[in-house]
């Protein structure tokens, strides 16, 4: 066991993938000498060379577009988008090209490209640096979309994503990069990439979260326990495909569910969860599925972002409302 921050676990996972497969490339803005603005690729260019860790021109569509070409030539590019809000210039290449090429070729081509996106708020950043754009990508057929929440998953999930023959959008909770945990870097006995995990068992309410919100939910569950309420927390980990089985098993038991994410609630991923849970658990539900998330506004200036982001109190308020129904 090694104590690693989430950021370092990402770095170790990338390193391992590059060691295991010479076709794995890392590319993006400032990923080489600088090691990325969050240092996730720190030291990789020194050890694997400039041909495999590529400092690209500042053009996101160019980065993803050339990654597609490299994949067509047999490489496995891992692309870093520097911040969530900068993925939009690449959205065309991701949505019209990357996601559809396997299907357009009737399965002849595969596109093992990973697009890493540090996401979410809470770091006091300027605009376009705190977004949660996952719903744009979960809405696009052909992409797999995952989000890690802790160092153990960061280490394994990035390696699993790189091994996938399908394109994977990989969300990293940037404000959790400095969270620490014990990681067994020798083990490969990993939870499957697209499985959700129950990170805290409970009886009364199911909290569904992913990425940065998982920790907030765990804190909320801790506080609720002091008041005698037992909240089960599920880390979805994968948004597409969704491990609906784990969710249904839980909600069937608890009868109450609150979805938590940083993205705006309106048309957010929680809407899909609420609809699916309603279809499958209709007669077991004691209250409607409630959603706690960002407001349906642009991400606010950072001085008030703490009010925008779901916090312990807003989660517990939603939990209370499920009982008041």
């Amino acid at each position: 066991m090694t104590t690693l921050t989430l950021g370092k676990a990402m770095n170790e996972g990338l390193r391992k993938a590059m060691e295991n497969d010479p076709k794995v490339l890392v590319m993006g803005e400032d990923v080489g000498k600088l090691g990325g603005v969050f240092r996730i690729t720190d030291g990789l260019q020194k050890d694997f060379g400039e041909e495999r860790v590529i400092d690209t021109p500042l053009a996101e569509s160019g980065i993803v577009g050339t990654a597609i070409g490299l994949a067509l030539r047999g490489y496995r590019p891992v692309v870093e988008i520097q911040f969530d809000g900068f993925v939009f210039p690449a959205a065309d290449q991701i949505i019209t090209q990357l996601a559809k090429m396997h299907m357009r070729s009737l399965g002849k081509l595969s596109l093992p490209v990973v697009v890493r996106i540090p996401c979410g708020g809470g770091i006091g950043a300027v605009e376009h640096h705190s977004e949660s754009p996952e719903a744009y990508f979960t809405h696009t057929a052909g992409l797999r979309v995952v989000a890690c929440s802790n160092p153990v998953d960061a280490y394994s999930m990035i390696q699993q994503a790189i091994a996938s023959p399908d394109p994977v959008i990989f969300f990293e909770p940037k404000r959790r990069y400095w969270e620490k945990a014990e990681v067994d870097v020798e083990s490969t006995d990993w939870t499957p990439l697209h499985s959700a995990t129950v990170v805290r068992p409970g009886e009364h309410v199911t909290l569904l979260a992913y990425g940065p919100s998982v920790k907030t939910c765990l804190e909320a569950a801790g506080a609720a326990a002091e008041e005698g309420r037992s909240l089960e927390v599920i880390d979805l980990r994968s948004l597409n495909p969704l491990d609906i089985g784990t969710v249904v098993e839980s909600v069937d038991r608890t009868g109450r569910c609150v979805v938590v994410h940083e993205a705006p609630v309106y048309n957010g991923f929680g809407a899909e969860l609420a609809a699916r849970i309603t279809e499958r658990c209709f007669y077991r539900l004691e209250s409607p599925v409630l959603r706690v998330g960002g407001f349906s506004t642009p991400y606010p200036p950072s001085r008030i972002e703490d009010q925008y982001l779901p916090d312990l109190d807003r989660i517990l308020d939603a939990v209370d409302r499920t009982f008041a129904w």
């Binding site: 993803v64 050339t66 490299l70 994949a71 030539r73 019209t96």
Partner: peptide, 17 residues
């Protein structure tokens, strides 16, 4: 125009080969 980037990436792959 999308394919010009795929072509460029493919060519970068040939380079790396």
């Amino acid at each position: 125009g999308s394919q010009t980037l795929h072509a460029t990436g493919y060519a970068m792959g040939v380079q790396r080969d």
